[in-house]
Amino acid sequence: MSLPAIIESIIFAADAALSLDRLCEMLPEYERGDIKTALTELAEFHEGRGGGFGLVEVAGGWQFRTHPVLQEYVVRHIKAKTAKFSQSALETLAIIAYRQPLTRAEVEHLRGVDCGGVLKSLLEKKLVKILGKKDIPGRPLIYGTSKEFLEVFGLKDLKSLPTLREIQALDETPQFERQEELPLEPDQAPPVDSSLLFDDPE
């Protein structure tokens, strides 16, 4: 069997996204580079096929996901379990995603309004997590986004969030509705300094 077929079968049968590392671990007889290429080929194959689902990279793992335009048909069988987020929840998430790690007081300063309730519900939904305590008087908690945040919003990593400058250029007409527009293969993205990988995405 060809490597793409092998990988496809593993990802199809898995119940959660599988990372490249995990795939390499499972397939010691293949080169990491080959596995990476096969993943890209698979993703391109599924995209070009125009089918009901595709292979996407989310939160550092690969997973089959249905195409968002087919939502209305999928929900005839499967109940949608995620509610639309309120504007305040999205604002708070955006601030945390772009500025993490930060404290509740910093979020509130940026939004100019109390964020206790919003933050609590984001914590309960596990989209935001407590990263630790800040070493300033009062030792306030510091928050950051979780892996679940990337999964729910279909993001490969924090760097795949549009930069604030790009958002300003868009000016109120968001065009990031289709996750297929994300670069699916890290190599295709413009070269980045690996030391910046875990930095602020801004």
Binding site: R65, T66, K84, E172, P174
Partner: peptide, 29 residues
């Protein structure tokens, strides 16, 4: 950040617009 929130909110959400094969519940998966 308001606009960033709208951009993020316009994305297809797992468990709402987009579904995975085995575990439709994002929290669970």
């Amino acid at each position: 950040y308001k606009e960033a929130g709208m951009v993020i909110g316009a994305r297809a959400l797992l468990g709402r617009e987009v579904f995975t094969r085995a575990c439709p519940d994002p929290a669970l998966s």
